[in-house]
Design a protein around this nucleic acid. Structure first.
Lengths: 244, 244
DNA sequence: GGGTGTCTTTGACCCAGATCAAATGTGGAT
DNA sequence: ATCCACATTTGATCTGGGTCAAAGACACCC
């Protein structure tokens, strides 16, 4: 809806149909031409619903900046977040006409959208885009499966630590922090959203965050800015064997 | 390792690289030629581990008959199943050299395997195979996300009912039962495997299965054969809004 | 037939996390 | 500055499902 995107400072690439980083080297001129014709940008405010589950969805796109969530809700109101959309993440499923999940902006969000039909055409005759999309979907599947372990088998404290590690990792990549830079980031989620991600109640989330703070695993400035003095300690709390 | 597959009676197709049903119409002769060169069959016994997480994996494939599971285990032994592989499901990730999960046969399993390098070559120059694989991966992602709701927000009773509905549905498709045929199927999982799928203990699984039986939602012959007198009642117990 | 190993059920008790309730920031609008 | 709408914290209590323990129920083998 905006004429020109205001991209965040890092090397996000306005042209790449899927990721906003790293893929652009492979883009060729004629594809760009076609993409420009169908590409547009949309802004959403924190708290705003981007798409309701069941809505007709005539675009796909990716998050340029901000954080959004995918979630499912049962009739009685229980909700479970099933995906966390950080910058560069893809939204929408080619080949499906309606949204399967609610998509909600948890911070202000800038999305780069492509009308679906042309995008699908592009995919059909640009193998590397289709290939890239498969790779991304497989990554998402791995993330979902890792999350199943968290939901099914971890304690409340481990769940919180797992969520914080994930956000810390993504944040480090996004801002290209060096390996040994101090780990400080903003929590883009309310306690309730964290609870919905973790299959907990917001009270339990609050208590466990406080507990991690008391135990010196993390420290807080305000409610949202988190400092992790020793990342390996946090990974340890998460029960992640992927600690290095 | 076998010279010729013994396929199950239904319209499974020995030729299709990905699914064993429904896709074959699109197969073309020269592809088949290439596939035959790299295709082989392997049998596994109930309880046998097909691949350990971290193992080098030089093939991809699909389940022809039987049931296998994908699971993750923490250092302290807690395990979570992250995928249930029923006939026609795909195993393995193109482009990744090592397995990310343990794959275990829960019944006797016949797998149709393709050596990975040639399969990837085939994928690269056969768009419809790549496309089909994307579609399947997206379906798996949806299944994983549905499962996240089960793990995160459902009660033990709802979890059991959800699992039974899923197996009933897949079984009905596999055996092409008509909509209003009586719903009877064999549970291909031990109580412990069910527990690992559902994020419960085996005792709780046992108790909840008994409770559903006492309440007349299901009935059992032996430990494994299940009859569902009224499927909509089961879906109801599962808290599934997808009841029709 | 009896023995043996595995799967399953059932019982008794306990605790992590849910629920209910109230107080305490915190930021924005007027 | 004051008010208001939230987000968050904290406390008290309850409970679903975990844990520990023991007893069936099969299937398979000798």
């Amino acid at each position: 809806m905006l004429q020109e995107p205001i991209l965040t400072g890092t090397q996000n690439c306005a042209e790449c149909p899927i990721r906003h980083r790293a893929v652009c080297a492979r883009c060729e001129t004629d594809e760009l031409q076609r993409l420009e014709e169908v590409k547009y940008y949309r802004r959403f405010e924190a708290g705003q619903t981007i798409i309701w589950c069941g809505d007709r969805m005539d675009f796909v796109g990716s998050v340029v900046s901000g954080v959004a969530t995918l979630s499912q809700t049962m009739e009685d109101g229980r909700t479970q977040m099933v995906g966390l959309l950080l910058p560069s993440d893809f939204v929408g499923r080619p080949g499906r006409p309606v949204a399967a999940y609610d998509v909600t902006a948890t911070t202000d969000v800038l999305m780069c959208c492509f009308r679906k039909a042309p995008f699908e055409g592009l995919m059909a005759d640009t193998p590397h885009i289709a290939h890239r999309l498969l790779e991304m979907t497989l990554d998402e599947l791995d993330a979902a499966r890792e999350w199943m372990l968290v939901l099914g088998r971890k304690t409340a404290r481990e769940k919180i630590a797992s969520l914080l590690s994930i956000i810390a990792r993504r944040d480090a990549i996004l801002h290209q922090r060096s390996k040994d830079a101090p780990v400080v980031f903003d929590l883009p989620l309310t306690r309730e959203a964290m609870a919905d991600y973790l299959g907990l109640t917001l009270e339990t989330v609050s208590r466990q965050v406080s507990a991690l703070r008391k135990d010196g695993v993390i420290s807080l400035e305000g409610k949202r800015r988190i400092t992790v003095p020793d990342l390996s300690r946090l990974l340890d709390e998460a029960g992640d064997d992927s600690a290095t």
